[in-house]
Amino acid sequence: MTARIMTKRTLTDATVTGRRELAHHAWLIELEVELEAPVRAGQFAMVHPLEAGTLLPRPFSVLDHRDGRLKLYVKEVGAGSRALAHTPLGERVQVFAPLGRSFPIEEFRGRPVVLVAGGVGLVPLWKLRSELLASGEEVPHSLFGARTIEELPGELLEGWRIHLEEAPPSAPSGEGSSTMSAGGGLPTAPTGSGLPTAPAGGEVEVGLVTLHLDEILREQPDAVLALCGPDAMMKAAARIGRQRGVQVWVCLEEQMACGAGVCRSCTIPAAGGRTMKTVCQDGPVFSLDEIDYV
């Protein structure tokens, strides 16, 4: 396996310089912070709003990092993420980053790449996609799944094929799959909600994000499959990838206290089940053959 070198970490204070709601209770948060190393796709930051009242920082996958700005896409799921999402502009937060191992982008070069993301699992794959495009690689197959239209972070989804589990109110109810043209029938959020619509030109389909994965992989036997999202989605996609014999990378999430391999709370069984790996340090990006996953 290609060695994935961990990068130099920085523990410092950052200033909140941007916050915008991109989808229902999900925020684009921008932090001004001096990091000693660039953040790569899949790496994460432990972020602790200093006035949050939560004991521990929370791990957030990094959406983008350039020019001293760290962008996170934060869905409110608990006290920590809620506190960060609502930290006012100008307030300080503690940042420890970059942490963990990134997607090994060199393994993706020159090969067809298929990205399957669900929910906030979009974050590392959005970054991976932008890194691949920036280095001149072919446009990856980019599949994004969400439950409802309210969960779509419109401006991040340009170029992504969108799958919704629940048909939007205005859409024709599908028998597992119904494609809506991006012209007239494109579903939009209820008027006046202030929430974004699906991106212009994007394709939206009702059904699981894995619906067409097998077809896509069947045509691309040398593909690399990268997954991040809810466990059930990743496992379903990983099984399809394994059956097709393609290389599969997963980006995992676990509860963690430290982000540095110390607290041992984010451990998962390694392949074979005899030893453990930490999601924070051995991951969060794993090749499917490293871990006992599906």
Partner: peptide, 11 residues
């Protein structure tokens, strides 16, 4: 190997 998940809860 330690105990199975979950291993940690924040209060």
């Amino acid at each position: 190997k330690g105990n199975p998940q979950p291993r940690l809860r924040e209060l």
